[in-house]
Design a protein around this nucleic acid. Sequence first.
DNA 1: CAGACATAGTTCGGAACCGCAAGTATTGTG
DNA 2: CACAATACTTGCGGTTCCGAACTATGTCTG
Lengths: 191, 191
Amino acid sequence: MSGHHTIAETEKAVQAKLGAVPLHREQMAAVSNIHRAATAIRQHLENSVLRTSDLTWTGFVVLWVVWIWGEMETRYVAEEAGISKGTLTGVAKTLQSRGLLERLGHPTDGRLAVLRLTPEGEELMGDLFPKFNEEEVFVSNPLESSEAQSLAEMRRRMVTHLEANGEQRRLDLRGDTPLPPRRSGRRAKHG
Amino acid sequence: MSGHHTIAETEKAVQAKLGAVPLHREQMAAVSNIHRAATAIRQHLENSVLRTSDLTWTGFVVLWVVWIWGEMETRYVAEEAGISKGTLTGVAKTLQSRGLLERLGHPTDGRLAVLRLTPEGEELMGDLFPKFNEEEVFVSNPLESSEAQSLAEMRRRMVTHLEANGEQRRLDLRGDTPLPPRRSGRRAKHG
DNA sequence: CAGACATAGTTCGGAACCGCAAGTATTGTG
DNA sequence: CACAATACTTGCGGTTCCGAACTATGTCTG
């Protein structure tokens, strides 16, 4: 995954490329490879335990969230799973079609929808999660227990910070110029 | 991003769910939220600096790799960017169509293709990267400089370990039963 | 040098995914 | 009761993504 260049080589090349521009090295290192690490871990988990049950990463995460918390309103499921509501609708549909998940109306508030595992889903997760956790152990083998803890703690701090201040930061950055629309996406009906 | 449940609450719920099954807490914490953190960071970067240039995360990473290393064979670009060769073909096509990237044949080995930035691509990256790095600083604000370093170092250890031992581990896990094909994916021509 | 094998890249199938707009239904409020 | 707010779904247009099949090229070996 780290290709054929080390981090040190990469930083050197970046510095050469930027010349006089000051570079924030530690922060670059702290951020730049997180996505690659996440991808590597995700692929290991997908190809070791998830694939045999024909689950995608996202499908598993959604099942996991609902499994842990029991019945859960869809908006919270999306939030906890880190996907958009629209995506959740599709993923939930896939999982429903495989008989792992069911969708219920909320008893008092008719606007809400609630997700719950079917017995099959419960059984699958009861079987799958221990295996999943075993691979989490494998993946974090090279870390001391205390390191694993502080790693999680640092990440939590970054996420909390982003949640608290990210939106304001983005607002400040773009000032008065509004965010341009994406290239893709539905267009307004008239025009 | 962390929804309305803290990590501690989540762990408690997991333990309740699993009952007697021993749970590897630190490792679970070390792994389970990395993807969520990566997503949060990615979305901040996309919506702060990338969106104004209509670049996706992956598109930016590919440009970045080629920018740093100059001309580069596509297989190495894919490896450094952490995507499959097939994905790179599509991404490179998109970037070519926007005039940021060009594709050259290799002079001596006809199988190889080489990517290089166009002058427009060079200019864009020269403008964009400092802004990107600024946001990397923002994202890692809550970390001490030494923490940022050790974070990156731990992650690097995990990735290295996966690269070295992941495939063997997956082989051991599935034993003699072959990996089932994905639900999606190309099928053999005949049938 | 032909045939086997290896390597690099592209094509393709199917799914995930986003962000937005619009639509539906329900609930809260003045 | 009109009207705003909320929750979810649907659909659009695009990108990304994997991995297997396929194509083209290079290399090794008898």
